[in-house]
Amino acid sequence: MKKHPNKHIQSAIEYALEHEWVWIASGSHSHTFCKLRCGNPANEHKDHQISIWCTPSNMENHAKQIIRKVNQCF
């Protein structure tokens, strides 16, 4: 798994992975860095996912969005 160049977003990705989310590689011609999907073993949250952008307009806000999405699965 590659690391996001922004420390805030990388930290949010690591937070998601610690909470059983799954990292999905993006295509080579995509503006997304990767996708994260809830890996709940009961598969109750199969629609919970978020695209991680390479260069969002506000890096810190994007990191907060990732964390909020992960927290919705608790």
Rank of each mutant, 00 (worst) to 15 (best):
residue 40 N to I: 02
residue 61 N to H: 11
residue 8 H to L: 12
residue 22 V to C: 00
residue 55 T to G: 00
residue 44 E to K: 14
residue 64 K to D: 10
residue 38 C to I: 02
residue 54 C to P: 00
residue 23 W to M: 04
residue 54 C to V: 07
residue 23 W to S: 01
residue 62 H to K: 11
residue 59 M to L: 11
residue 38 C to Q: 06
residue 60 E to N: 13
residue 53 W to G: 00
residue 9 I to Q: 04
residue 52 I to S: 04
residue 67 I to E: 08
residue 41 P to S: 09
residue 47 D to I: 08
residue 74 F to Q: 11
residue 62 H to V: 04
residue 44 E to R: 13
residue 57 S to H: 02
residue 21 W to D: 00
residue 48 H to W: 13
residue 31 H to F: 05
residue 66 I to R: 06
residue 41 P to F: 02
residue 41 P to I: 07
residue 20 E to Y: 09
residue 5 P to A: 03
residue 55 T to E: 05
residue 72 Q to T: 15
residue 60 E to G: 00
residue 61 N to D: 09
residue 18 E to D: 15
residue 2 K to W: 01
residue 15 Y to D: 03
residue 48 H to S: 15
residue 23 W to Q: 05
residue 43 N to K: 15
residue 29 H to F: 07
residue 69 K to V: 15
residue 45 H to W: 14
residue 39 G to T: 07
residue 10 Q to W: 08
residue 32 T to A: 06
residue 73 C to A: 11
residue 35 K to W: 10
residue 29 H to T: 07
residue 73 C to I: 07
residue 2 K to C: 01
residue 33 F to Y: 11
residue 60 E to Y: 10
residue 4 H to K: 00
residue 40 N to D: 14
residue 69 K to R: 15
residue 66 I to W: 10
residue 17 L to W: 13
residue 65 Q to S: 15
residue 53 W to K: 06
residue 71 N to V: 07
residue 56 P to V: 00
residue 3 K to F: 03
residue 63 A to P: 14
residue 25 A to I: 03
residue 34 C to Y: 06
residue 47 D to F: 14
residue 11 S to G: 12
residue 44 E to D: 13
residue 12 A to Q: 03
residue 2 K to Q: 09
residue 36 L to P: 09
residue 37 R to T: 07
residue 54 C to K: 13
residue 25 A to S: 13
residue 47 D to M: 13
residue 71 N to F: 08
residue 7 K to A: 07
residue 2 K to H: 10
residue 40 N to F: 08
residue 4 H to Q: 01
residue 37 R to F: 01
residue 25 A to F: 02
